[in-house]
Design a protein around this nucleic acid. Structure first.
Lengths: 237, 237
DNA sequence: TACTCCTCTCGTACGCTGTAAGGTACCCTA
DNA sequence: TAGGGTACCTTACAGCGTACGAGAGGAGTA
């Protein structure tokens, strides 16, 4: 401890060494708390009490960080899913699949940034493969051919992992009252069905005027639609 | 033409003024040709023979450019869709919807960057509203309640616009032969169903070993699954 | 003709990003 | 005691979006 006088403390504790896992865990935490936009190499480093370039000793580049945090999340899904006592796939593949997928969704809701990042990944990740393999196993046990199970995975798409991207997130739903009313009339000319649909729904369920879509309900609705369709397809072969 | 001697030609033609539309059209063209990564303000400007900062007179910022090119693509969809002679929705809503959606898909295939950008948009765009409104109209004519039609839009998700994001794009499918075989066995321990599924499918259809998913077929499979499910839901109310 | 105003474009500069290249402190082994 | 890996840091650079202010050119008015 001769000189070293500049800024950092003389480092009393033995200094826990960094490693890939600590880096990725910190990245997940950072994205969770401050949003994915805040996940920069410099931010991540400073979160770990380290300089940005030090990270590059443990990960090749930022892409690997993104791959890594997806890996962490899917790993979390796999663990949660492994803890489940599923219905027997032989007699209730639909229930087993449904339960798994809704569990995955519950994990993803804890990491709101994850869907967007997952979608940008190009390389296949072992944990995702594990997850899909388990789904396939359930379907096989439920009487699917590999061919149908393959189509099923495609049909589910991102829903298999518990999310859908909404093209249709009306954050800007009517705010005021009088002027909103006027705009409503103006829009009614161009998009009559949408307007009528919204008024009808907000009439049936008054307190849902804004944020009027129950995402969880809609997710399950779509999921069940697909699962029922798959069951029908399975039976007719 | 007095002096102006520096670098650019003395400008013989009267100089077509820029405008929002020319900017957006150039942005679409740039993304089409060089990929969305190449769509930077500087690149876009130089494509238009102009400096980067000049763009900001016509668009507020890059976000508006992205909003704008999505607008352009969806507009293209709406035009293409308007040119269709659809089956009468009253007697064949499913056919009408199907045709529309596959048309949208055909347009999107001309702009491969579009799905990713569409998903990142947060603000609602008038052309998308038009598109959805037309879908709603078809469903209403086909006997849907607004409530069911609403669920239907959610269930379709991005599929309504003609795309699904694939979590499952096996670019890295087995490349070599001998060593790939060895790796296959190793993977078979961890992801047995996936491996068997792949070998079975590549056995049934030998020339599809890599790039083994027919995206168009899978899209239509999933789409029809959902449409059939919706028809069933419509009938039982 | 001279002045002003508006429309449109450009030059410069700033803060942010990811990361290449090389330097330095520590510890383990020969 | 010397050498060599391991882990971290300093510096620097190119590229990004964009704030700010300076013009150039034309239109309208005195």
């Amino acid at each position: 401890m001769k000189r070293m006088a500049t800024k950092t403390e003389p480092r009393t504790e033995p200094r826990v060494p960094l490693n890939r896992n600590r880096v990725l865990a910190a990245a997940v935490a950072l994205a969770d708390h401050d949003g994915i936009r805040a996940l920069t190499m410099r931010n991540l480093a400073s979160e770990l009490g380290v300089e940005a370039m030090s990270l590059y000793y443990h990960v090749a580049n930022k892409e690997e960080v993104l791959d890594g945090i997806v890996e962490m999340v899917v790993n979390e899904i796999n663990q949660e899913v492994g803890r489940l006592e599923s219905p027997a796939a032989e007699t209730d593949w639909k229930g087993a699949l449904r339960q798994r997928i809704l569990t995955a969704r519950r994990v993803l809701l804890r990491h709101p940034w994850a869907p967007a990042i997952i979608e940008t990944r190009t390389t296949m990740n072992p944990d995702v493969l594990d997850y899909y393999d388990a789904l396939l196993g359930l379907m096989r046990a439920g009487g699917f051919s590999y061919d149908l199970a393959h189509h099923a995975l495609h049909a589910l798409g991102s829903r298999a992992l518990g999310f859908t991207q909404e093209l249709f997130d009306p954050d800007d739903a009517s705010s005021g009252d009088a002027e909103a009313e006027a705009m409503m009339e103006q829009m009614a000319a161009r998009i009559p069905h949408l307007v009528e649909m919204m008024t009808e729904i907000s009439h049936d369920d008054p307190e849902s005027t804004l944020g009027w879509c129950d995402d969880q309900y809609e997710f399950e609705f779509g999921l069940d639609l697909i699962l029922d369709g798959l069951e029908a397809a399975r039976l007719q072969t």
